[in-house]
Write a protein that binds this DNA or RNA. Structure first.
Length: 481
RNA sequence: GCGGGAGUAACUCAGCUGGUAGAGUCACAGCCUUCCAAGCUGUUGGUCGCGGGUUCGAAUCCCGUCUCCCGCUCCA
């Protein structure tokens, strides 16, 4: 049993084909030629994604007495995004090298230039450019100001030394749309680029209505939208994606302790609950922190195309609540009723991408092995994740076996996602189930008619056992705890 | 957004010195009645990504456009 050690593109192509052929993931609006980096989840995919989200939701909310859930709206008052910093810093000033056609962040070019001057001991010059840069950052026409500095300082492209620049242009990563019939700037709203702000602005609502005391958390699963310049790698980087995140509000000073505890819990969740190969999970510590964070780690997964983030655990300080206090004019303090202390809580965030996790599970589960000299393809999903929990297969289509199998299917269908299949040879039907990751098959055979038993066939080993039909429900239930 | 490659059946692909499309797999119906796919018979399914042009005639040539893959760039 080994996962395919093949070229990354090959593995990804196989996954994309299988995902489409069997109904996990289709390209969005495919009959019209699709839409860049947008995908639809099919019957099996939506079932499996729901399993993933349910597992997360239960492990975050029901398993923690002090965490509750919300489902905030995607569109919010636009001032939210000024307070959060997205309006200003989700805008990237980009400049293109006309010779090499490469694109760079204009501000990074200038920053690197200043750094280089410092390294070369030209402190005075560095200071002069740095002063320009600061005022340029505040300038009305920031693009022009950055461009002027790049030209005046004769900043060259880092990898080619060429200096054949285009204008500086802004790339806004937030999707804009208009609320109301008139396309005027007053009605401009954004599709949220992250779900977190929906939690922060509801801090007091949730605290009060659910009578929560710090430390407590608010969990949310929802869509976010980013107008990414670079998309791709199947569903890894989509412009519309889903986050599963939790903001944990703690007393200032206790955030590191809380951070470490969440770091451990979240990492183990992937291994213990989802059955992801531990060796494929990695920590990445951010050295360069975002404007809101004082500590940040990512959990990364070894995808065929590289080691990439699936969850971020960030200590967001009191930045967000403070900003909302300033921009909204509303007090965001928490009052500890036992000590009468007042403070703006610090926040520890766990933020996972459900689409990325879905992809990680596809990649981690894809297995090619050999059974009796025949190659087979199998998805080794954990039973809780698998879209179909069991298949009910009559060894023969006609007669009593079919009737008995149909009866068993009806009994199980109320509680479990099961499939009934009587088409083709039994071996072929097992392979069909292997390919969609069904962990168990119950086969009704000759003996079943006499002794009311069936065989359980295990996906991973292809081994079989005999159990009574009356125990099948119990058996499945036990496997799905 | 730039450079390179590519879009033909649900999937993998052939056809591309222009003459209105094929294979294998899959799926479906039947036979076989069998515990690990690919036995037999039959069937469904494509205006060749989309739009336009050249031509008597375009999957094939030209232009535009969309999408996917690789690389670059970017990434809260």
């Amino acid at each position: 049993m080994q996962s395919a050690a093949q070229s990354p593109e090959k593995v990804m192509n196989k996954l994309v084909s299988l995902a489409k052929r069997r109904g996990f993931i289709y390209p969005s609006s495919e009959i019209y030629g699709g839409l860049s980096s947008c995908f639809d989840y099919g019957p099996l995919g939506s079932e499996m994604k729901k399993n993933i989200k349910d597992l997360w939701w239960i492990s975050m909310t029901r398993k923690h007495q002090n965490i509750v859930g919300i489902d905030a709206s995607i569109m919010m008052n636009p001032t939210v995004w000024e307070a959060s910093g997205h309006v200003s810093s989700f805008n990237d000033p980009m400049i293109d090298d006309k010779t090499t056609k490469r694109r760079y962040r204009a501000d990074h070019l200038i920053e690197n230039h200043i750094e280089k001057l410092r390294r070369d001991g030209k402190e005075e010059e560095a200071h002069r450019v740095s002063t320009y840069y600061e005022s340029a950052s505040e300038a009305e026409d920031q693009n022009r100001a950055f461009y002027d500095i790049i030209i005046a300082e004769e900043i060259k492209a880092p990898d080619t030394g060429s200096a054949d620049w285009t204008e500086v242009r802004q790339f806004n990563l937030m999707f804009q749309c208009n609320m109301g019939a008139l396309a005027e700037s007053s009605g401009k709203v954004y599709l949220r680029p992250e779900t977190a702000q929906g939690i922060f602005v509801n801090f007091h609502n949730v605290r009060e209505s659910s009578r929560m005391k710090v430390p407590f958390g608010i969990a949310q699963i929802g869509k976010a939208f980013r107008n990414e310049i670079v998309k791709g790698n199947f569903i890894f980087r989509m412009v519309e994606f889903e986050q599963m995140e939790m903001q944990y509000f703690v007393k200032p000073g206790t955030q590191v302790e809380s951070f470490e505890s969440w770091r451990e819990e979240r990492f183990n969740w992937y291994i213990d609950r989802l059955g992801i190969t531990p060796e494929k999970l990695h920590w990445y510590k951010h050295d360069k922190l975002a404007h809101y964070a004082d500590l940040a780690y990512d959990i990364k997964f070894e995808f065929p195309f590289g080691i990439e983030e699936i969850e971020g655990i960030h200590s967001r300080t009191d930045f967000d609540l403070k900003q909302h206090q300033e921009f909204s004019g509303k007090n965001m303090e928490y009052i500890d009723q036992t000590t009468n202390e007042r403070y703006i809580p610090y926040v520890v965030e766990t933020s996972a991408g459900s689409d990325r996790l879905f992809l990680a599970l596809l990649c981690d589960s894809y297995t090619e092995d050999v059974i009796d000299g025949e190659q087979r393809v199998m998805m080794r999903f954990a039973p809780k994740i698998a879209p179909v929990k069991a298949a009910i297969l009559p060894l023969m289509k006609k007669g009593e076996m079919g009737e008995k199998a149909a009866k068993l299917r009806d009994e199980l269908a109320a509680d479990f996602m099961v499939q009934y299949d009587d088409a083709g040879s039994i071996g072929k039907r097992y392979r069909r189930q292997d390919e969609i990751g069904t962990p168990f098959c119950f086969t009704v055979d000759h003996d079943s008619i006499e002794d009311h038993s069936v065989t359980v066939r295990y996906r991973d080993t292809a081994k079989q056992e005999r159990i009574e039909i009356s125990k099948v429900k119990e058996f499945l239930g036990a496997k799905l705890v």
